[in-house]
Structures are given as C-alpha cells and as structure tokens.
Design a protein around this nucleic acid. Structure first.
Lengths: 401, 401
DNA sequence: CTTATTAAGTCAAATGTCTTGACTTAACTG
DNA sequence: CAGTTAAGTCAAGACATTTGACTTAATAAG
C-alpha cells in the first residue's frame, strides 16, 4: 500500500568487515614497508600480536604472504619477516585509446606479467570490443601458460579510457571517443571475459600506477597530472582514489585558462594533441610519438615554442591544484616521449609561489613521474588488485543485496 | 641499538570499532530520513533487526534517541519510530574574524542553543584569546543555565578562522591574521576550556553547516563556495569533509585568474574585501555590512560594476570546481548581505557549459546556500558533533596510543 | 466474527573475531 | 652462565553480530 521508501544511510558492518579490513591493513603495511615480522605488524596496525598471527596464518594459507629467512636483531627471539607473494593475485588491464588498445596482466605487486597491443578501428566500439576481447584472451592465455596457478586468482579486469564519461555526445568529437562512451562497454567485456570489470579515466589509472609502485606510494594526498592527447588529473585524496560523483573528477583539461586575451581550455596548449597539431602531425598515419622524440632531440623551434606555452600553462595548473587540493606533492605523468617530458618538466620551474611552499616541507612540490606509455594499462590492471586488497572504507561496509 | 623504525600503515579495527561505526550509521540514518523504526533501520543499514535493537537500546540509554508515538502502517505489528534527541549532545563553536569573534553553542541537531559576539583587538591574539575564552565561558554558562543536563554532554569546541594555515607570515598581511596563525591557539583554548578543540577554515565550517541542516545534507560530493572577506571552498568529497594534507584544501581565493591581460587571484575581484575596497569602506570604522546592504538596494553603480566583475569570475570558478571535482552540486554561501548575495547569485547565470551538464541531472548545478553571518560559527560548532557521531572511516580505526 | 496473513520486534543460543595474560623460545649482554 | 629482552604461541575469555524460533499486534479476506 505504502510506496517503498528509499532510505538513505551508509551500511553497517560486522565481524566479517572487521577481519576483512585487518587483512587489508596487514597487506598494506607489508607493501609500504617491505617484509615485516608479526611483531612489527602488530605495532604498525595496533592489532595484538595474536590477531596478527591469526591473520598471517590465514594470508599464508591463501598464498598472499610468505615467510622469509629469520632475522636476528639484537636481544630477544629472532623475528620472521613476511613478504607479499607476487603470484598471490593477478588482474588484467585494458587501455582504450583512439587508435590502439593495450592489454596487460599484472601480479599482486602490480608488476607486469604479460602484455599485448593492437590497433583499434577508430570510432567503432562494436568491432573494437571484439578486438579487445581477443587481446584479453591472448594475454590471459599467456599469463596462464607462464604461471599455471593463476586461473582462479584473477581479481578482475580494469579498463582505462579518456573521459569525461556519461555526457551527451558533443558535436565536435575530434578523438572519436564519443561512440565508445555510448557503447555498453563494461557489460560487453564483463560478459565476454566472465570477470569483474571496472572503469576509470586514463589520468586516474596513471595515478593508480604511481600509487602501486611509483612516487605516490604511501602518500595520502597526491595530484597526478597526466599529459596525454589531452590533460587530466588523477586524484589521491585522503589515501583513496577520488573520482567524483560521476567518475569525471580531475578532468582539468577543460578548465578555462586565459592567454593573450582569449579564454581557452587548458588542454588547448598543454596537451600532446596541441603539439601534434602545431607540428601538423596526423596521429593516424604517422608515428607521431617517434617524430616528436626526434624533433625534440633536434631542438626543433616549433617544439621549443610549444614547450614554452605548455610550461606556462602547466605552471599555472600546478599552482591551481596545489591551491585547491593542498596535496603532499604533484606529479607530472603521461605518455610523452621521455626527452620531451623532461624538458617540459624542467621548463615548469620556477614554480609559482603557493600555499604549498611551507616551512618544513620534505617532499618536492612537483615531481616527474612515469611517462611509460604502458602506465595507463598497468594502472587499469592494478585497480582490481587495489579494490580487492587495499584498506578502504567501502571494504568494511556490508555489501548491497 | 637499532633505531626505532617508523612503520607506515592504517591501523586495524576490532569489535569496538564495529559497534562504534554501527551506532554512527544508525544516527546518520535517522538524521537523514527523519524518525525510523527499528525495522526501517535494519533495512537502511543492512544490519539485523536484533543488532539494531541492541544499538537503539544503547542509544536510548545514552539519551541520543527517543521513541515517538506508535505508527500503524497497514498489516503487521505497528512500528515505533525513533528520533534524535536534540539535547543528547552539544558543542561550542568559535568564529575568529579580523575584528570580531562569534561564539555559539549548538545541540545534537546542529541548532543554535546560545550565542555571543564580541570585538577582537586586531592582530593581538594574546588579548584576543582572552576575549574568546571569556565569551566561551559566557555561552557555556548560558547553555547550562538553559539546559541543566548538558555539562558532560559537551563534545568539544570547534574553531573556524580564515586560512591558509601553517605558512610563513607573508609580508603583506592586510587582514592581520598572520599573528593569529603563529599563535598556539588550539593549545590555549584547550587549556582554557578543558574541551577537545578542532580547527578548520571558515569555508569548511560553512560547508559543515550546510551539511548539517542545509542544502548539502545527504549529499556526498559538494563544493561549497564561501564568499567572505576572501573566497574559499568547503569540500565534501565522498561523504566526508576534505581538508587536504595541511587543512588548506579549497583556498581557491588564491587561484590565479586572468582578467584583461593581468593575472590576479580570484579573490581580487570575487570577495567582499574587493567590494569594500571599491566602495572605499573601512571595515574597522564603518558598518560595512549595512552600508553594502543599503547601497545594493539603492542600485549604486559601483555595486553593479563590482557585481559584474565578481559574477564573471565566479562563473568561471563554478566551472573550475565542477570540472575538477565533479560534484553533485555547487553552493554559494558566505556572509554577504542577502540582497547582494541574491543579485550575485543571479548574475552568475547562465553558467558556462561544463561536464556537470549531464543528461538526467536532478540536482541544480549551482544553488544559493546560507548567507547567515553566523553560519561559520554554527559550522565550527557542528564539527565536534559530526566528529563524534558521523560514520567516517577514521572512527573505525583503533586510536593512536 | 473468525481466520489468515503480514510485519515489528524479542529471546536465547551460536558464531566469529579480537583480547588477555601466562608461557615458551631464542637470542644477546655482562 | 645467569639475566634480560623480544618474538611468538596457547587457551580461555570477552564482545558484537547472527540465527531461527517465537510473540505481539495490526489489517484483509471470507
């Protein structure tokens, strides 16, 4: 008779949530600090020795941790450190870009275990998703061939592609991603692989990669600028990845910057697309990446000119994210050729004065992260791992029915 | 012999953490939905009926919830809704501004229970903190006189003042807040009141106020622009207040905007300070607030001119925070006279196209929040309440030794 | 009017996880 | 070689949630 009311609240938790969290905390502690003994873990997590012992036993049985050689450290019984077992879990990651797709498998430590790359038919997600599925199966077969135990240890499939997500297709869609946005990608890949599928934008995936093995590891507040065809920011806020209410947080490429009287999106000058355009490169027909690398080494004046404009905007972007997020550090990542990235990074200095310039700073305000073109795929693959094993709030809550 | 190593990890949890979280979840569910029966609560929190019964009994004994009249809703045993008891908890809040301080007491629901205001000697935190302490004692006495039970139910004292915090004192310090920043304020007020003291900037406090009773209630992703002497943003991200690594997140007044060739901080045009300057008002000697209100009603051309500039910048600021945070909504709050605020709010429209313009939106992109000058003090006071009773991640973890 | 159905809420035993304190083991120190 | 320190285990206990049967109290249907 009464209409069913929607009741809003976070969900509660129970003993299961408690122990799940504690398992995750132990894994995190070992990941951050390297091998730790049970006593070390008890101190790090504030759990009792006994609880840690139980959990370690549990994790060892699951093949996620293993003991190392006994260590003597002065008086008292020697300790037995435990390390994470790389083969304890795996995940797959897919990067979808305009013209190509990269698929990787990573292990529990986020290290690459297999990879494959293929071209994508631009603007054709139907055929494109078939290509991806074939590639995923190839990588999966590769992985299983190499490490036989892995089959049931696959925690999921992470996808990374340029955002923003969920918008009305725009009239101008220079990157042909509009059709991909409209395509039921997650459903298709979930059905085709039988895996749990997650989606994030490329900047967020790159931040995940930096968090897994890079400069962001162990930090709780990091803004990771991602310079690709466009420019975006992957956000680690309060120790967790932040993606906003619709997975579109950090799309700073669309923030408006004024230059010489005109108001333009940041990515108009600070993006590889703007560089390719300046150079008259068609990414579909030329190997733009190598061309840019060569021209950079040659000191091409168009590159220098672009660098100046991009660095100016980037300097302001760093100031903006420092001011807005109050992060511990800002990273420059992306898929630019290494020489270009290094020049750009250097050209951003000196940084603008900002709130980040505080007495007693120990971490650099602005650092150069990875420019590995595979970082996005690796980050995409690391996402299911982190979902399954990181101590996050949502892992404690009871699941939806 | 070995140096004590610092081991990094989140801390673990135990049954205590579990039940503490569940208590908080129940409180949140009632706060968001209004009175709920035990069965409703079980559905909302995914806890079992029995668990909810235990917790409700517990909360009732603590005087935090109380039963209402039995409700018949069709077949089955009638249900007994529980509501939050306003007198169940109290907290004090202090707003410190350049020339004055406001102190309020709020109840469990965030409603004002007592208030007081006094002038502050500009740039003199030693004498100023004495003024504050006297005012706090006055409000506390007021509160206790009105509601005798309250003494031990005081959860803490929240302070709000303009940021940024922890920086080297700048050469130009037009607002005389530099000396306050250097002063050991938390320690002084903690010692003087015997209460737990917390600190946030004024924009964050205003966001807390909006979250407690205003437009942000029940939303998980909100950016709350605060237009005061300067301009800042209070951030609610992922259901929790976000303050960055050094409590300086959201200080968007310092973000650089280009206008007519010059690069200037946002607050150069979009702040009350800029308006006062334009009008030649000295806030120390005149009642700037009333003057502005009168001039606004009169349609003073200087006001109109300022409005145009401020609205232009604000429009861009809204676009910026929408793009960067992907929030559910953006609120305009502050301490401007209501007529001015309404005009400014209206002048921001039409909003710039952004990622927030998605199909199927139900919440307005940009809303006018409170301009109550007491909102900051109320938010400061609500902070200890929310710390003590909101279901946040940190509440589950074991405490530091 | 009587019976069936539905839903709220309680009871008591069971389960799962962490905690406690005593104990064992194994090293270094003097 | 005895004393001290620290890692790690053992077993009983404490605590919070879960389970399933049961009670209570209303409406709906015949």
């Amino acid at each position: 008779m009464n209409e069913l009311r929607t009741i809003r609240a976070k969900s509660g938790t129970n003993q299961e949530g408690t122990s799940a969290h504690n398992r995750r905390v132990i894994i995190e502690a070992i990941r951050l600090n390297g091998p730790l003994s049970r006593a070390d873990l008890a101190r790090a997590t504030r759990l009792t020795k006994q609880t840690v012992s139980n959990l370690i036993e549990n994790l060892e049985a699951d093949g996620l941790v293993a003991s190392e050689d006994v260590v003597r450290r002065g008086r008292g019984q020697p300790s037995t450190p435990y390390r994470l077992v790389a083969e304890g879990a795996f995940a797959l990651g897919v990067q979808i870009d305009r013209e190509l797709t990269r698929v990787v498998a990573v292990d529990f430590l986020g290290r690459e275990a297999a990879r494959a790359v293929a071209n994508l038919p631009p603007g054709d997600p139907v055929e494109g998703s078939r290509v991806i599925l074939r590639l995923v199966e190839k990588v999966r077969a590769d992985l299983v061939a190499r490490i036989p135990v892995s089959a049931h240890r696959l925690t999921g499939l992470g996808i990374a592609m340029p955002g923003p997500f969920g918008l009305e297709p725009a009239g101008d869609d220079p990157w042909m991603m509009g059709k991909w946005q409209a395509f039921p990608l997650l459903e298709t890949l979930a059905a085709g692989t039988g895996l749990d599928v997650s989606l994030q934008n490329d900047a967020t995936a790159c931040a995940t990669a930096e968090r897994m093995n890079g400069a962001a590891d162990g930090l709780d507040h990091v803004v990771c600028l991602y310079l690709g065809y466009g420019i975006g920011a992957g956000l680690i806020l309060g120790g967790e990845l932040y993606t906003g209410s619709n997975r579109n947080a950090g799309e700073i490429g669309m923030v408006l910057f004024s230059r010489g009287g005109a108001v333009l999106p940041l990515e108009h000058r600070a993006s590889l697309a703007s560089l390719f355009q300046r150079l008259g490169l068609d990414t579909a027909t030329t190997d733009a990446y190598e061309t840019v690398e060569r021209l950079t080494r040659e000191g091409d004046p168009r590159i220098l000119d672009w660098l100046e404009g991009a660095a100016t905007d980037l300097r302001q972007a760093v100031h903006m994210v420092e001011t807005i997020f109050d992060p511990q550090t800002v990273l420059l990542t992306g898929s630019a050729p290494q020489p270009l990235a290094e020049r750009l990074f250097a050209a951003v200095f000196p940084l603008l004065p900002s709130n980040a310039e505080r007495p007693g700073r120990t971490i650099a305000r602005f650092q150069l992260g990875t420019m590995d073109p595979w970082a996005v795929a690796l980050g995409a693959a690391a996402d299911p791992i982190r979902r399954a094993f990181d101590p996050v709030f949502s892992a404690i809550l009871k699941e939806a029915t």
